[in-house]
Design a protein around this nucleic acid. Structure first.
Lengths: 177, 177
DNA sequence: CTTGCAACTATGATTATCATAGTGTCTGTT
DNA sequence: AACAGACACTATGATAATCATAGTTGCAAG
């Protein structure tokens, strides 16, 4: 199997058609988000995205086939893998950031705190939603940013991870008191 | 108004989950691309995206329901509508631009011309793929950009429009010599 | 009064996704 | 040695989305 099969818009010059052919669906985007946040394990991707296990497996397979993700064995016996973004995958960061900005501005109740605070790596100032540095007075490149999850969002994520393992234990052994 | 039905990720603080709930699919993104390019008519959206008519109809309905698109009658008798992005829709531009940059850099054969050349509105210089102005020496905000389709891409789009009307005439009246 | 166009809607087949359950391989505990 | 548990999946059958194709409506021009 060669990479980037027929699911990309190969028959057009439009780069957006190409992009959406590879990451034009909810689960792929959410998985990339998680990988950018530093998650590497299958179950964490599943828990934090809310996708079913086949969705995660299928998407990871496709992302790997398209060269966005690499699978590394961190243990044979038992065979365990971690998933990491390739440079091609990491360069989706601007897409994720743009979706973040739009989502914060247009999809969330007014006045709610952003889920992630962004800082200018070189000067430490907190950036506004558009990625502007109030100290340096201009747009900051994504490579010069550092993100920090808000306490509320970190808590939500911990909760999700806990719920996931709970649910697993329950469905594996339903007759526990 | 806090509309946006149940298809957005309403139960999370993550703005990306919210965004992908509204535009986390290929057809929505491609339709937004077309609207940003200035197309307004149903058939043009269909021809240029390659979606089926129900997909266009369904997506426009959803985008309208979510407040990204407005439908204006430009003629009663016969009843005709045009579709336009609302400010909420227009603000997806950075997402589209990020997908463009990524698609040009990672999904197309090396050395191929970008489908669209971007210029700095205030100084006229052509921007690089990352949206940097070589004259002004920094990142340019999307509101200060102007795009111009390459001749090759314009031709591809003309071709697509022509093929579409051809196909329509043929399937409506198949026994023409 | 027929042809044609624009903007859809209807239909039935094919695919994708979902909820749920199960498998295989190891580790750590009893 | 036996067994529970973690992890990374795969299997299955039901439900939902998407596809190709065709049809409808409303009007205008010839």
């Amino acid at each position: 199997m060669g990479n980037s099969k027929d699911h990309d818009g190969d028959d057009t010059l439009c780069p957006i058609a190409h992009s959406t052919g590879l990451v034009g669906d909810r689960w792929s985007i959410l998985i990339v988000r998680e990988l950018l946040l530093g998650q590497t394990r299958f179950q964490d991707l599943q828990a934090q995205t809310g996708a079913t296990s086949q969705m995660v497996a299928a998407r990871l397979k496709r992302l790997e086939g398209d060269g966005l993700v690499e699978r590394h064995a961190y243990s044979r016996r038992p065979p365990r893998h971690e998933y990491r973004l390739t440079p091609k995958g990491v360069h989706l960061m601007p897409v994720i950031l743009a979706l973040r900005t739009w989502g914060e501005r247009w999809c969330k109740p007014e006045g709610e705190q952003p889920a992630t605070r962004m800082f200018h790596r070189t000067c430490g100032s907190e950036l506004d939603l558009d990625g502007r540095c109030p100290a340096c007075g201009g747009l900051v490149a994504w490579t010069d940013m550092r993100g920090q999850p808000s306490e509320a969002w970190a808590e939500e994520r911990r909760q999700r991870a806990a719920d996931f393992t709970d649910h697993r234990r329950v469905s594996a052994n339903p007759n526990t008191e």
